[in-house]
């Protein structure tokens, strides 16, 4: 066995989500779920794999993240991953999906196009929003299952999904269209979608920050997902501060008990003249930092009680650009996500 091959096999069994082919990424607005979905796609594509990254809300978040032209409903290569991997992007469009659906089941593509021009397709998906979700998850399922010969076209599919408040309803298409369509192709489509989404081949990951609201919504979403029988994946904690103070310093800073006289001497020794106002400001900044760290620690305990595999990604004070995405992807791999 060659070394390279051994490496591949080892990785396959080493990762926490080896059997998962559909990674759904949700999180409260503002937690960076699109960034995490992008980093996860890169991580999964590393070492020669092909990964499809899908968005479903028409925001063009993926295009902005990877700094590429706007995406449409055709898969397009958007990035290469270390070791020859490739990431493709797709912005799913429910109207297009419905036209395909009409074409496939009723041979009605032309009538469908005419109705689209009249605004009727939009109307139909509006009076029954569940239909839109079935169509979007249906396209996702199709991408997961797509084959070329005997092999899957994509090794994994990552979905930048709706936020925590809407994720369970969005994924749980079966119950959503439950009363709507009891037979017919929409029902079969919903059943086929659930066969993938509610299976061990899917994992719904929740992105959070170490702040009260996102953590609270993470807990709520996990409870709802479990109740709906959907497979909960990991909790990914984004924008984690690198600890700058030791435990003892943390306590001192909190009590505003840092020795400012000593600080003044130290600063002087490296050529910084410290006025009283500078010293006070530095002391206050340390106290604020300590308070925030303590708050984050409390939220960490809440997250630990949720008892899910948890990964952390560091705060990047200078912001996110496509280069930093690769760092985040590497960090996810180091933690065993992919």
């Amino acid at each position: 066995m060659s070394a390279a091959y051994a490496h591949c096999v080892a990785r396959e069994s080493d990762t926490d989500w080896g059997g998962v082919r559909l990674h759904v990424v949700t999180g409260k607005g503002g937690t960076g779920k699109t960034t995490i979905a992008g980093a996860l796609a890169l991580a999964l594509a590393t070492d020669g794999r092909r990964v499809l990254l899908i968005e479903v809300e028409g925001r063009q978040g993926i295009a902005q993240l990877f700094d590429v032209p706007p995406l449409d409903h055709n898969d397009r290569r958007i990035a290469s991953a270390p070791g020859g991997g490739e990431v493709f992007g797709n912005a799913l469009d429910s109207e297009e999906a419905l036209l395909e659906f009409l074409d496939m089941f009723y041979n009605m593509r032309r009538a469908g196009s005419a109705l689209q021009k009249m605004g009727a397709i939009d109307f139909a998906t509006t009076i029954a929003p569940g239909v839109r979700d079935v169509l979007l998850t249906g396209k996702t399922k199709e991408a997961v299952r797509r084959k070329s010969g005997d092999a899957y076209v994509y090794d994994a599919v990552v979905m930048d999904a709706p936020p925590t408040g809407r994720i369970t309803r969005f994924l749980n298409v079966n119950s959503e269209i439950g009363d709507l369509a009891k037979t017919g192709p929409i029902r079969s489509q919903a059943d086929a979608v659930m066969a993938v989404i509610a299976s061990p081949a899917t994992a719904v990951h929740v992105v959070t920050l170490l702040e009260e609201m996102p953590v609270q919504e993470t807990g709520d979403a996990i409870t709802e997902l479990i109740e709906a029988g959907l497979p909960v994946g990991a909790i990914i904690v984004n924008q984690v501060r690198i600890p700058l103070l030791t435990e003892a310093e943390q306590a001192q800073a909190t009590d505003h008990a840092i020795d400012l006289a000593q600080l003044a001497i130290d600063l002087e020794s490296v050529g910084i003249t410290a006025t009283d106002s500078i010293l006070t400001a530095l002391g206050n900044q340390a106290a604020d930092h300590a308070e925030r760290v303590a708050l984050e620690e409390r939220e960490r305990i809440v997250i630990a009680a949720l008892d899910r595999p948890t990964y952390e990604l560091p705060l990047r004070p200078d912001g996110i650009d496509p280069g930093i995405l690769y760092d985040l992807a590497e960090s996810l791999r180091d933690q065993g996500v992919a």
């Binding site: 700058l244 310093e249 130290d266 600063l267 020794s269 530095l282 002391g283 900044q285």
Partner: peptide, 16 residues
């Protein structure tokens, strides 16, 4: 400051 062993002052500057 870290090289000089003044760890707390160094940490305060890093926060800043």
């Amino acid at each position: 400051l870290t090289a000089l062993g003044a760890d707390t002052s160094a940490a305060v500057l890093r926060i800043h």
